[in-house]
Design a protein around this nucleic acid. Structure first.
Lengths: 205, 205
DNA sequence: TTATACTAACATGCGTGTATGTATGTTGTC
DNA sequence: GACAACATACATACACGCATGTTAGTATAA
């Protein structure tokens, strides 16, 4: 019955993958550990062996799921262009990747729909909150550069720009997750990014 | 033990109010009927008497909570102004009202975080989905007018404008609900709306 | 031979729903 | 308008299932 070390690591990863899918689809409370175990083709015992309990699994999962969005950002920055070009690219790439990457969908869902977190998970909520704050701060620093170089309209604070940006990004993804058949993130992504970054208002030059 | 007819209606409403608060804070699965009953200062028996079961209570709640956003829209339209002015006003009013109205906060949370809805509530999810579709269609019709009258930039479809708009509105509210102390929806509302509607890009006229 | 990676069986608690009880409003009848 | 007959608005207590966590067992890698 005992498996080799790498086999064990594999089932551990399988459990994390399965948990990500089920948690993001059904929420924390509604997911039954037996569903996760079944999807990973083990029994619940494996979960308790690797993660101690349900909350431990969720904890681990969130740690492994973090720092995914940052990869897209660095990739978009590397391709160069103006400040607005980069912001546009971040949105377009995020939208397209969400539509085509099931795993990323699940991670986004996990971050966006973190209600119904049990009392025993308040520390997790707090951690996510802190992470989002530092993320906003980081984006705000970038936005400040955009303001300083005259590529962003003045009169709006860097933090407002930052909040506006990720609010939009999350809002679009959220909307799509709620009804994926309604529209295509890949096809409409560029227009959605354009409408946001260039604004709705028609300014005659 | 039997109360007068209007007393009964009162406890029924108390239960709905209590349910809105608890459901929106903890999610469907995590809320215990005893919590709702306690907050309404009755026992669970009252819930089963008035609503049959937990799902019935949630169902009723969602019906009574619907059609709140439309009120803001009509109010914003009545005040007149250009198309962009009205859109701006809708955002600003929504943001400000969310920050100051606990009930509206709960309703928004209920709509935004509708994950973890039990298998017995798939019909509710479907209903919410349908409502959001017709809402988007309605907004798109308005946006089409904005395009036709040259007040919205051409080259973007009415539906994309509509999705963009409510994605942003929801995104900002979602962001704030996740961390209300981080910023003030009332104070930053105008800037957030402005950044969105006029765009980030600095266009030199 | 020992620690590991689980499986299987069991115990426990908790939350929903239901059945019953009860006090009181409400309605018809004379 | 008084009084029975019934309906209502809950409270209380119980039954039941289900999901978590725990413990014991087993096979095998190290």
């Amino acid at each position: 019955m005992k498996k080799t070390a790498e086999e064990a690591a594999r089932t551990r990863q399988d459990l994390l993958d399965a948990a990500l899918g089920v948690f993001s689809r059904k929420g924390y409370h509604a997911t039954r550990l037996v569903d996760i175990a079944a999807e990973a083709e083990v029994t619940r015992g494996a979960i308790y062996h690797h993660f101690g309990n349900k909350a431990g699994l969720y904890r681990e999962l969130l740690d492994s799921a973090s720092m995914v969005g940052s990869q897209i950002v660095t990739e978009a920055v590397q391709q160069g262009g103006t400040f607005i070009d980069i912001l546009q690219r971040i949105l377009v790439m995020t939208f397209a990747r969400v539509e085509n990457d099931r795993r990323l969908q699940d991670i986004m869902a996990l971050y966006l729909f973190n209600t119904d977190l049990a009392d025993e998970l308040t520390d997790i909520r707090e951690k996510v909150r802190q992470e989002s704050i530092t993320m906003i701060d980081g984006i705000a620093a970038q936005m400040q550069m955009g303001i300083d170089t005259g590529q962003l309209r003045p009169g709006i604070s860097a933090h407002t720009y930052a909040r506006s940006f990720i609010a939009y990004q999350n809002g679009v993804v959220d909307l799509w997750l709620g009804n994926p058949q309604a529209f295509s993130l890949t096809k409409e992504g560029a227009a959605l990014a354009d409408a946001f970054l260039r604004g709705f208002a028609y300014q005659i030059d």
